[in-house]
Write a protein that binds this DNA or RNA. Structure first.
Lengths: 195, 195
DNA sequence: ACCTGAACACCGTTCAAGT
DNA sequence: ACCTGAACACCGTTCAAGT
Protein backbone atom coordinates (compact mmCIF):
# COMPACT_ATOMS: atom_id res chain seq x y z
CA UNK A 1 0.00 0.00 0.00
CA UNK A 2 1.28 3.44 -0.93
CA UNK A 3 2.51 5.91 1.63
CA UNK A 4 0.76 9.26 1.77
CA UNK A 5 1.75 12.44 3.58
CA UNK A 6 -1.36 12.22 5.69
CA UNK A 7 -0.51 8.72 7.00
CA UNK A 8 3.02 9.79 7.83
CA UNK A 9 1.81 12.82 9.80
CA UNK A 10 -0.84 10.75 11.60
CA UNK A 11 1.68 8.10 12.63
CA UNK A 12 4.12 10.81 13.73
CA UNK A 13 1.39 12.32 15.92
CA UNK A 14 0.72 8.92 17.47
CA UNK A 15 4.41 8.42 18.30
CA UNK A 16 4.39 11.92 19.79
CA UNK A 17 1.39 11.13 21.99
CA UNK A 18 2.61 7.74 23.14
CA UNK A 19 6.35 8.29 23.54
CA UNK A 20 7.10 12.02 23.33
CA UNK A 21 9.13 14.22 21.01
CA UNK A 22 12.48 12.58 21.87
CA UNK A 23 11.28 9.32 20.31
CA UNK A 24 9.89 11.01 17.21
CA UNK A 25 12.80 10.11 14.92
CA UNK A 26 12.79 9.49 11.19
CA UNK A 27 14.06 5.94 11.67
CA UNK A 28 11.48 5.05 14.28
CA UNK A 29 8.69 6.63 12.26
CA UNK A 30 9.79 4.63 9.19
CA UNK A 31 9.91 1.42 11.24
CA UNK A 32 6.37 1.90 12.55
CA UNK A 33 5.17 2.57 9.00
CA UNK A 34 6.92 -0.62 7.82
CA UNK A 35 9.05 1.35 5.45
CA UNK A 36 12.70 2.28 4.97
CA UNK A 37 13.92 5.65 6.34
CA UNK A 38 14.73 6.78 2.81
CA UNK A 39 11.07 6.44 1.83
CA UNK A 40 10.16 9.36 4.10
CA UNK A 41 12.50 11.58 2.10
CA UNK A 42 10.44 11.03 -1.01
CA UNK A 43 7.52 12.77 0.75
CA UNK A 44 9.33 15.28 2.95
CA UNK A 45 12.53 17.16 2.16
CA UNK A 46 13.78 17.01 5.75
CA UNK A 47 12.84 16.14 9.30
CA UNK A 48 12.18 19.83 9.91
CA UNK A 49 9.60 19.92 7.12
CA UNK A 50 7.93 16.80 8.51
CA UNK A 51 7.80 18.27 12.02
CA UNK A 52 6.28 21.42 10.52
CA UNK A 53 3.50 19.30 9.04
CA UNK A 54 2.95 17.62 12.41
CA UNK A 55 2.83 21.07 14.05
CA UNK A 56 0.14 22.17 11.60
CA UNK A 57 -1.76 18.97 12.38
CA UNK A 58 -1.58 19.78 16.10
CA UNK A 59 -2.69 23.37 15.49
CA UNK A 60 -5.60 22.50 13.19
CA UNK A 61 -8.25 22.48 15.96
CA UNK A 62 -7.15 25.99 16.97
CA UNK A 63 -7.71 27.26 13.43
CA UNK A 64 -11.47 26.79 13.33
CA UNK A 65 -13.47 29.92 12.55
CA UNK A 66 -14.06 31.92 15.68
CA UNK A 67 -17.53 33.25 16.52
CA UNK A 68 -18.08 37.00 16.31
CA UNK A 69 -17.39 38.75 19.60
CA UNK A 70 -15.62 41.77 21.03
CA UNK A 71 -11.83 41.94 20.44
CA UNK A 72 -10.92 41.06 24.02
CA UNK A 73 -13.15 38.01 24.03
CA UNK A 74 -11.90 36.96 20.59
CA UNK A 75 -8.31 37.01 21.81
CA UNK A 76 -9.26 34.91 24.83
CA UNK A 77 -11.06 32.36 22.64
CA UNK A 78 -8.17 32.01 20.20
CA UNK A 79 -5.63 31.68 23.00
CA UNK A 80 -7.66 29.10 24.89
CA UNK A 81 -8.08 27.09 21.69
CA UNK A 82 -4.33 27.35 21.05
CA UNK A 83 -3.43 26.20 24.55
CA UNK A 84 -5.95 23.34 24.40
CA UNK A 85 -4.52 22.20 21.07
CA UNK A 86 -0.98 22.22 22.46
CA UNK A 87 -1.99 20.40 25.64
CA UNK A 88 -3.82 17.70 23.71
CA UNK A 89 -0.54 16.23 22.42
CA UNK A 90 2.51 15.21 24.44
CA UNK A 91 5.21 17.86 24.01
CA UNK A 92 2.81 19.81 21.80
CA UNK A 93 4.08 23.22 22.92
CA UNK A 94 7.71 22.23 22.40
CA UNK A 95 7.01 20.84 18.94
CA UNK A 96 5.09 23.91 17.80
CA UNK A 97 7.60 26.34 19.32
CA UNK A 98 10.41 24.68 17.39
CA UNK A 99 8.46 24.65 14.13
CA UNK A 100 7.39 28.26 14.52
CA UNK A 101 10.95 29.33 15.30
CA UNK A 102 12.30 27.46 12.27
CA UNK A 103 10.32 27.47 9.04
CA UNK A 104 6.96 29.14 9.02
CA UNK A 105 3.90 27.21 10.07
CA UNK A 106 0.83 28.04 7.99
CA UNK A 107 -1.50 27.36 10.89
CA UNK A 108 0.41 29.74 13.14
CA UNK A 109 0.26 32.43 10.45
CA UNK A 110 -3.51 32.12 10.50
CA UNK A 111 -3.65 32.36 14.27
CA UNK A 112 -1.39 35.43 14.20
CA UNK A 113 -3.67 37.11 11.68
CA UNK A 114 -6.73 36.39 13.84
CA UNK A 115 -5.02 37.94 16.86
CA UNK A 116 -3.77 40.84 14.78
CA UNK A 117 -7.26 41.53 13.45
CA UNK A 118 -8.59 41.63 17.01
CA UNK A 119 -5.90 44.13 17.99
CA UNK A 120 -6.78 46.30 14.98
CA UNK A 121 -10.41 46.18 16.04
CA UNK A 122 -9.28 47.30 19.48
CA UNK A 123 -7.84 50.40 17.85
CA UNK A 124 -4.20 49.62 17.07
CA UNK A 125 -2.58 50.37 13.77
CA UNK A 126 -1.55 47.30 11.74
CA UNK A 127 2.14 47.43 12.69
CA UNK A 128 1.41 47.60 16.41
CA UNK A 129 -1.28 44.96 16.07
CA UNK A 130 1.08 42.47 14.38
CA UNK A 131 3.57 42.92 17.19
CA UNK A 132 0.87 42.60 19.84
CA UNK A 133 -0.28 39.37 18.17
CA UNK A 134 3.25 37.96 18.24
CA UNK A 135 3.63 38.97 21.89
CA UNK A 136 0.47 37.08 22.74
CA UNK A 137 1.71 33.98 20.94
CA UNK A 138 5.07 34.16 22.76
CA UNK A 139 3.12 34.18 26.01
CA UNK A 140 0.87 31.24 25.10
CA UNK A 141 3.77 29.12 23.83
CA UNK A 142 5.96 29.95 26.83
CA UNK A 143 3.25 29.40 29.40
CA UNK A 144 2.07 26.15 27.88
CA UNK A 145 5.54 24.72 27.31
CA UNK A 146 6.26 25.44 30.96
CA UNK A 147 2.97 23.93 32.09
CA UNK A 148 3.52 20.84 29.97
CA UNK A 149 7.05 20.26 31.22
CA UNK A 150 5.81 20.52 34.80
CA UNK A 151 3.14 17.95 33.99
CA UNK A 152 5.85 15.60 32.78
CA UNK A 153 8.04 16.00 35.84
CA UNK A 154 4.91 15.43 37.86
CA UNK A 155 4.02 12.23 36.00
CA UNK A 156 7.60 11.06 36.50
CA UNK A 157 7.12 11.32 40.26
CA UNK A 158 9.33 14.38 40.74
CA UNK A 159 7.23 17.10 42.25
CA UNK A 160 8.26 20.62 41.39
CA UNK A 161 6.52 23.32 43.45
CA UNK A 162 4.18 25.63 41.54
CA UNK A 163 4.97 29.32 42.04
CA UNK A 164 1.44 29.99 43.31
CA UNK A 165 -0.39 26.77 44.09
CA UNK A 166 -3.69 28.40 45.03
CA UNK A 167 -4.99 28.78 41.50
CA UNK A 168 -5.24 26.14 38.80
CA UNK A 169 -3.32 26.44 35.51
CA UNK A 170 -6.32 27.64 33.48
CA UNK A 171 -6.95 30.50 35.89
CA UNK A 172 -3.28 31.38 35.92
CA UNK A 173 -3.21 31.25 32.13
CA UNK A 174 -6.16 33.63 31.91
CA UNK A 175 -4.54 36.00 34.39
CA UNK A 176 -1.33 36.27 32.37
CA UNK A 177 -3.29 36.76 29.18
CA UNK A 178 -5.30 39.50 30.88
CA UNK A 179 -2.05 41.37 31.44
CA UNK A 180 -1.62 41.52 27.68
CA UNK A 181 -5.19 42.49 26.83
CA UNK A 182 -5.14 45.17 29.54
CA UNK A 183 -1.86 46.31 28.02
CA UNK A 184 -3.43 46.59 24.57
CA UNK A 185 -6.25 48.70 26.01
CA UNK A 186 -3.84 50.93 27.93
CA UNK A 187 -1.58 51.31 24.90
CA UNK A 188 -4.51 52.54 22.82
CA UNK A 189 -5.58 54.98 25.55
CA UNK A 190 -2.03 56.30 25.81
CA UNK A 191 -1.83 56.67 22.03
CA UNK A 192 -5.18 58.51 21.93
CA UNK A 193 -4.02 61.05 24.53
CA UNK A 194 -1.06 61.97 22.32
CA UNK A 195 -3.30 62.85 19.36
CA UNK B 1 46.64 19.77 32.31
CA UNK B 2 43.49 19.09 34.29
CA UNK B 3 40.06 19.81 32.94
CA UNK B 4 37.89 22.17 34.97
CA UNK B 5 34.19 22.92 34.67
CA UNK B 6 35.00 26.50 33.82
CA UNK B 7 37.19 25.57 30.83
CA UNK B 8 34.55 23.21 29.52
CA UNK B 9 31.85 25.88 29.71
CA UNK B 10 34.13 28.48 28.12
CA UNK B 11 35.00 26.18 25.20
CA UNK B 12 31.33 25.28 24.79
CA UNK B 13 30.48 28.99 24.59
CA UNK B 14 33.14 29.48 21.93
CA UNK B 15 31.76 26.62 19.81
CA UNK B 16 28.32 28.16 20.23
CA UNK B 17 29.52 31.56 19.03
CA UNK B 18 31.53 30.26 16.09
CA UNK B 19 29.37 27.40 14.82
CA UNK B 20 25.95 27.54 16.51
CA UNK B 21 24.00 25.26 18.79
CA UNK B 22 23.70 22.42 16.24
CA UNK B 23 27.48 21.93 16.38
CA UNK B 24 27.62 22.06 20.17
CA UNK B 25 27.91 18.30 20.70
CA UNK B 26 29.64 16.41 23.49
CA UNK B 27 31.99 14.71 21.02
CA UNK B 28 32.96 17.90 19.28
CA UNK B 29 33.45 19.71 22.58
CA UNK B 30 35.68 16.87 23.81
CA UNK B 31 37.69 16.95 20.56
CA UNK B 32 38.33 20.69 20.86
CA UNK B 33 39.40 20.22 24.47
CA UNK B 34 41.80 17.40 23.38
CA UNK B 35 40.00 14.97 25.57
CA UNK B 36 37.83 11.85 25.24
CA UNK B 37 34.01 12.26 25.31
CA UNK B 38 33.84 10.18 28.48
CA UNK B 39 35.97 12.76 30.29
CA UNK B 40 33.14 15.29 30.10
CA UNK B 41 30.93 12.89 32.02
CA UNK B 42 33.25 13.06 34.99
CA UNK B 43 32.42 16.77 35.30
CA UNK B 44 28.83 16.87 34.07
CA UNK B 45 26.15 14.23 34.59
CA UNK B 46 24.61 14.81 31.16
CA UNK B 47 24.58 17.07 28.13
CA UNK B 48 21.51 18.80 29.57
CA UNK B 49 23.41 19.70 32.74
CA UNK B 50 26.31 21.04 30.67
CA UNK B 51 23.98 23.14 28.52
CA UNK B 52 22.43 24.48 31.72
CA UNK B 53 25.86 25.64 32.84
CA UNK B 54 26.43 27.29 29.45
CA UNK B 55 23.03 28.99 29.76
CA UNK B 56 24.01 30.37 33.16
CA UNK B 57 27.26 31.59 31.62
CA UNK B 58 25.31 33.38 28.89
CA UNK B 59 22.92 34.89 31.45
CA UNK B 60 25.63 36.07 33.85
CA UNK B 61 25.85 39.63 32.42
CA UNK B 62 22.09 40.00 32.90
CA UNK B 63 22.38 39.12 36.57
CA UNK B 64 24.37 42.17 37.64
CA UNK B 65 22.81 44.23 40.40
CA UNK B 66 20.37 46.68 38.95
CA UNK B 67 20.41 50.35 40.02
CA UNK B 68 17.52 51.57 42.13
CA UNK B 69 14.68 52.97 40.03
CA UNK B 70 10.90 52.86 39.69
CA UNK B 71 9.39 49.45 39.03
CA UNK B 72 8.59 50.14 35.39
CA UNK B 73 12.13 51.30 34.66
CA UNK B 74 13.60 48.37 36.61
CA UNK B 75 11.66 45.91 34.47
CA UNK B 76 12.87 47.62 31.30
CA UNK B 77 16.48 47.52 32.48
CA UNK B 78 16.37 43.82 33.39
CA UNK B 79 14.69 42.91 30.11
CA UNK B 80 17.10 44.90 28.00
CA UNK B 81 20.02 43.26 29.81
CA UNK B 82 18.44 39.86 29.26
CA UNK B 83 17.90 40.45 25.54
CA UNK B 84 21.43 41.84 25.15
CA UNK B 85 22.88 38.78 26.88
CA UNK B 86 20.94 36.43 24.61
CA UNK B 87 21.88 38.35 21.47
CA UNK B 88 25.56 38.35 22.37
CA UNK B 89 25.85 34.60 21.69
CA UNK B 90 24.81 32.71 18.57
CA UNK B 91 21.55 30.86 19.30
CA UNK B 92 21.62 32.33 22.82
CA UNK B 93 17.82 32.59 23.07
CA UNK B 94 17.31 29.02 21.87
CA UNK B 95 19.89 27.67 24.29
CA UNK B 96 18.46 29.50 27.28
CA UNK B 97 14.86 28.65 26.37
CA UNK B 98 15.71 24.97 26.25
CA UNK B 99 17.60 25.08 29.56
CA UNK B 100 14.86 27.04 31.28
CA UNK B 101 12.20 24.63 29.99
CA UNK B 102 14.20 21.62 31.18
CA UNK B 103 16.06 21.79 34.48
CA UNK B 104 16.06 25.01 36.37
CA UNK B 105 18.65 27.67 35.58
CA UNK B 106 19.89 29.49 38.66
CA UNK B 107 20.52 32.67 36.72
CA UNK B 108 16.98 32.68 35.37
CA UNK B 109 15.62 32.17 38.87
CA UNK B 110 17.45 35.34 39.91
CA UNK B 111 16.08 37.29 36.97
CA UNK B 112 12.55 36.06 37.74
CA UNK B 113 12.90 37.21 41.33
CA UNK B 114 14.08 40.65 40.21
CA UNK B 115 11.10 41.01 37.90
CA UNK B 116 8.76 39.66 40.57
CA UNK B 117 10.08 42.17 43.10
CA UNK B 118 9.40 44.99 40.67
CA UNK B 119 5.83 43.76 40.16
CA UNK B 120 5.33 43.63 43.93
CA UNK B 121 6.61 47.17 44.18
CA UNK B 122 4.08 48.10 41.52
CA UNK B 123 1.36 46.85 43.84
CA UNK B 124 0.76 43.21 42.95
CA UNK B 125 0.51 40.45 45.51
CA UNK B 126 3.35 37.89 45.38
CA UNK B 127 1.38 35.23 43.47
CA UNK B 128 0.34 37.63 40.75
CA UNK B 129 3.82 39.12 40.64
CA UNK B 130 5.48 35.74 40.10
CA UNK B 131 3.16 35.05 37.20
CA UNK B 132 3.71 38.51 35.74
CA UNK B 133 7.46 37.93 35.97
CA UNK B 134 7.17 34.63 34.11
CA UNK B 135 4.98 36.26 31.46
CA UNK B 136 7.63 38.90 30.89
CA UNK B 137 10.32 36.24 30.52
CA UNK B 138 8.18 34.29 28.03
CA UNK B 139 7.92 37.48 25.99
CA UNK B 140 11.65 38.26 26.08
CA UNK B 141 12.65 34.69 25.19
CA UNK B 142 10.07 34.43 22.42
CA UNK B 143 10.84 37.82 20.91
CA UNK B 144 14.59 37.33 21.02
CA UNK B 145 14.53 33.76 19.69
CA UNK B 146 12.44 35.04 16.80
CA UNK B 147 14.73 38.01 16.22
CA UNK B 148 17.81 35.81 16.34
CA UNK B 149 16.43 33.24 13.90
CA UNK B 150 15.56 36.04 11.47
CA UNK B 151 19.12 37.32 11.79
CA UNK B 152 20.37 33.88 10.82
CA UNK B 153 18.11 33.55 7.78
CA UNK B 154 19.27 37.02 6.87
CA UNK B 155 22.94 36.14 7.18
CA UNK B 156 22.30 33.04 5.06
CA UNK B 157 21.04 35.26 2.25
CA UNK B 158 17.37 34.35 2.57
CA UNK B 159 15.45 37.51 3.28
CA UNK B 160 12.33 37.06 5.31
CA UNK B 161 10.09 40.16 5.46
CA UNK B 162 9.73 41.79 8.85
CA UNK B 163 6.11 42.26 9.97
CA UNK B 164 6.60 46.01 10.35
CA UNK B 165 9.85 47.18 8.80
CA UNK B 166 9.53 50.81 9.85
CA UNK B 167 10.91 50.36 13.34
CA UNK B 168 14.12 48.66 14.41
CA UNK B 169 14.14 45.56 16.63
CA UNK B 170 15.02 47.45 19.82
CA UNK B 171 12.07 49.80 19.40
CA UNK B 172 9.78 46.89 18.61
CA UNK B 173 11.08 45.03 21.65
CA UNK B 174 10.38 48.02 23.88
CA UNK B 175 6.88 48.37 22.44
CA UNK B 176 5.94 44.76 23.18
CA UNK B 177 7.39 45.04 26.67
CA UNK B 178 5.37 48.20 27.21
CA UNK B 179 2.23 46.15 26.57
CA UNK B 180 3.14 44.05 29.61
CA UNK B 181 4.09 46.92 31.91
CA UNK B 182 0.91 48.79 30.92
CA UNK B 183 -0.93 45.56 31.65
CA UNK B 184 0.59 45.36 35.12
CA UNK B 185 -0.48 48.93 35.82
CA UNK B 186 -4.00 48.31 34.54
CA UNK B 187 -4.28 45.06 36.49
CA UNK B 188 -3.43 46.87 39.71
CA UNK B 189 -5.93 49.65 38.96
CA UNK B 190 -8.63 47.07 38.23
CA UNK B 191 -7.82 45.22 41.45
CA UNK B 192 -7.92 48.43 43.47
CA UNK B 193 -11.39 49.30 42.16
CA UNK B 194 -12.69 45.98 43.49
CA UNK B 195 -11.54 46.69 47.03
C1' DA C 1 6.61 7.50 -9.39
C1' DC C 2 7.80 5.45 -5.37
C1' DC C 3 10.69 2.73 -2.54
C1' DT C 4 14.81 -0.42 -0.94
C1' DG C 5 19.62 -1.33 0.41
C1' DA C 6 23.42 0.22 1.85
C1' DA C 7 26.35 3.41 3.03
C1' DC C 8 28.29 8.05 5.20
C1' DA C 9 29.19 10.72 8.89
C1' DC C 10 27.85 11.39 12.85
C1' DC C 11 25.33 11.26 17.93
C1' DG C 12 24.86 10.65 23.80
C1' DT C 13 26.16 7.62 27.29
C1' DT C 14 28.44 3.90 29.98
C1' DC C 15 32.11 1.62 32.15
C1' DA C 16 36.09 -1.46 32.88
C1' DA C 17 40.63 -0.43 32.96
C1' DG C 18 44.52 2.51 33.39
C1' DT C 19 47.44 6.34 35.85
C1' DA D 1 40.53 11.52 41.48
C1' DC D 2 40.49 11.91 36.81
C1' DC D 3 40.70 10.14 32.26
C1' DT D 4 41.14 6.64 28.14
C1' DG D 5 39.48 2.96 25.08
C1' DA D 6 36.10 0.77 23.39
C1' DA D 7 31.81 -0.41 22.96
C1' DC D 8 26.36 0.06 22.73
C1' DA D 9 22.52 1.68 20.67
C1' DC D 10 21.24 4.81 18.15
C1' DC D 11 20.75 9.32 14.73
C1' DG D 12 19.57 12.33 9.78
C1' DT D 13 20.48 12.15 5.08
C1' DT D 14 21.84 10.59 0.38
C1' DC D 15 21.56 7.96 -3.66
C1' DA D 16 22.27 4.17 -7.01
C1' DA D 17 19.48 0.60 -8.05
C1' DG D 18 15.21 -1.80 -8.29
C1' DT D 19 9.97 -2.23 -9.43
Amino acid sequence: MQLHKHDVVAKAASILDNYGIADLTMRRLARELDVTPGALYWHFASKQELLGAVADHVLAPACADQPAAGWRHRIEIVCRALRDALLSHTDGAELVSASVAAGRSEAMALILSQLGAAAVEAGMDPGQAALAARSIVYYVLGFTADEQSRLQWDAAGVDVPEPSPTENPSTRFAFGLQLLTYGIGAEIDAGARLR
